[in-house]
Amino acid sequence: MDLIIEGLFQAFRLIAGLDAEVFSVSLLTLQVTLMATLISTVIGVAAGTAVALNEFPGRTFTVGLINTGMGVPPVVVGLITTVLLWRHGVLGRLELLYTPSAIIIAQVLIATPMVMGITLSSIQQIPRAFRLQVMALGASRFQMLWYLYREARLPLLAAIMAGFGSVISEVGASIMVGGNIRGHTRVLTTATVMETSRGNFDTAIALGIILMVLTYAVNYILSRIQQRGRQR
């Protein structure tokens, strides 16, 4: 208990003192996770919608694949990404391993199935007749999609939150592909793990608290968008 209180004080000191290192680690964490969330939202929502609205051979197989993707452990994704990005790996020419871009790639791979799966089920929950009704009022296909997303905005934003939650809390893949390099690829989760193994429990707890505050802040913004128009 003393340790947690100590951690709270330490967190306060680090934040109030605008500790340059903590600030840059936090900023990088936000940059990386928001970028990964944005990319996986674009890919996941588009692909999830495509699967939800279309009939094609192997559809059930694809849905099963997406649902499996939602449960793949991040370390496995990290391992595969590392092997691909190695100097002598398939994508070695890009020289991306141990860069923030590598973390983004791994996190996109983790979050996309999540966003895709939830998008798929939320679009499927809207009756087919609703789509027809929107079209029957003269909507183009694009306008129909707009109304569809508007109608499914609660679960869709939940999908984005789930994607964001899975990447900001993720540590295994980030360490593997990012390498926890100081000032370069060190993010809050990997820094927390490192400080823990260094025995700097108070700093570790402080980093954990900052991580939770950031997570809460982003989710709060998303929830605001999600819950808009519910008050009346």
Partner: peptide, 30 residues
């Protein structure tokens, strides 16, 4: 905003970096 973030990343990727593989203990001690 996110696009500017991305740009800031690409600028910090330098050529011919040195990769040092070492034990956790040297990192953990600082």
């Amino acid at each position: 905003i996110l696009a500017t973030f991305l740009v800031s990343f690409s600028s910090c990727a330098k050529k011919s970096d040195l990769i040092l593989a070492t034990t956790t203990s040297t990192q953990d001690t600082g």
